[in-house]
């Protein structure tokens, strides 16, 4: 299980080597999320259209090691955009990955860009 978690590491925009073309913008629900498969990774991608922002993070719940974060609910805590895990409503900042209502380890965050109506996620390998 530890190995599963260790596959997910936050990627900074500067360190992106591969921009993976995931799907068209329409494939993602407005103000909701969906899961993208990249190699053996599962990445949750969120179309936070109220904020006009896109976010991506690991799909793996760090608490229970299940692939569910993309099915969670978006929101904000005092202005910080966050995602709530559907299993036990643990919430994570979409900006830093930090667990906002507990002391779980942070989740990995990935950069997202939109070009020609396509959603791209940045990976370092």
């Amino acid at each position: 299980m530890e190995e599963l978690l260790s596959k997910y590491k936050t990627v900074k925009t500067d360190d992106v080597k591969v921009w993976f073309k995931a799907a068209s913008v329409e494939a993602f629900p407005i103000d909701g999320g969906a899961c993208v498969k990249y190699k053996d990774l599962q990445i949750a991608v969120f179309n936070f259209s109220r904020l006009n922002m896109w976010y991506a993070c690991q799909n793996l719940s760090p608490e229970k090691q299940e692939m569910v974060l993309s099915r969670g609910m978006l929101g904000d805590q005092k202005g910080t955009p966050k995602i709530a895990c559907p299993l036990h409503k643990k919430t994570f900042s979409l900006e830093t990955g930090e667990n906002l209502n507990g002391d779980l380890d942070p989740i990995a965050i990935y950069p997202v860009k939109i070009e020609n109506n396509f959603v791209y996620i940045g990976f370092s390998e």
Binding site: R50, G72, M73, L74, G75, D76, P81, T91
Partner: peptide, 10 residues
């Protein structure tokens, strides 16, 4: 105010 959350949305 704000963007909502997992409490108010449901």
């Amino acid at each position: 105010t704000g963007q909502g959350c997992e409490t108010c949305k449901p």
